[in-house]
């Protein structure tokens, strides 16, 4: 790991939570490109994220909102309750006020849309780590409703 050159304590340890494997993979690539950021682990849903936080104790969690089993807002609330030192930055494609508010009330410190550049995302992670909130610009109305309840798993 290139980050280790700088000593592990220097890098911000980031956990990635998203139900899409290719999004996790892209974010992993992103984290590997910045010296001061480090990939700490990944989870595909909220429940897994909570378990992983107990074990890995990351500095920052990048959290998707709409996921099967347990959504991002519920996971954020649980993580912040158990580990108040962990900062949660929401990273989603939805920009409805109600989702933004829900995430912030759950304890997220940042809210980013999935159209940010890598540099912006890196800056937001650093800001969150330093305790500075980062919110989305007031967006135009979204043209379709997000699926708030995920499809039920049959198997």
């Amino acid at each position: 790991m290139s980050n280790e050159i700088n000593g592990e304590s220097a890098a911000i340890r980031v956990m990635v939570v998203d139900d899409h494997p290719m999004v996790r993979s892209g974010l992993k690539a992103l984290l590997s490109a910045y010296d001061d950021l480090e990939f700490a682990g990944e989870a595909g849903n909220g429940a897994e994220a909570i378990r992983l936080c107990d074990r890995l104790n990351p500095d920052v969690v990048l959290m998707d909102l709409v996921m099967p089993e347990m959504d991002g807002a519920a996971a954020t609330r649980a993580i912040r309750q158990k580990h108040p030192q962990i900062k949660v930055v929401v990273l989603t494609s939805f920009k409805e006020d109600e989702l933004v508010q829900g995430a912030l009330q759950a304890g997220a410190i940042g809210y980013l849309l999935k159209n940010v550049s890598a540099d912006e995302l890196a800056r937001a992670i650093r800001a969150a780590y330093a305790g500075r909130p980062r919110l989305p610009p007031r967006p135009p109305r979204c043209s379709f409703k997000p699926r708030l309840s995920p499809p039920s798993a049959a198997t």
């Binding site: 993979s25 892209g26 974010l27 690539a29 910045y34 494609s93 999935k114 550049s117």
Partner: peptide
């Protein structure tokens, strides 16, 4: 599609550094 393209854009952003 949007999830895949987001990943594409993020990787393309950091590819020169990597």
């Amino acid at each position: 599609v949007t999830q895949t393209l987001f990943s594409v854009s993020v990787i393309a952003d950091v590819l020169p550094r990597i």
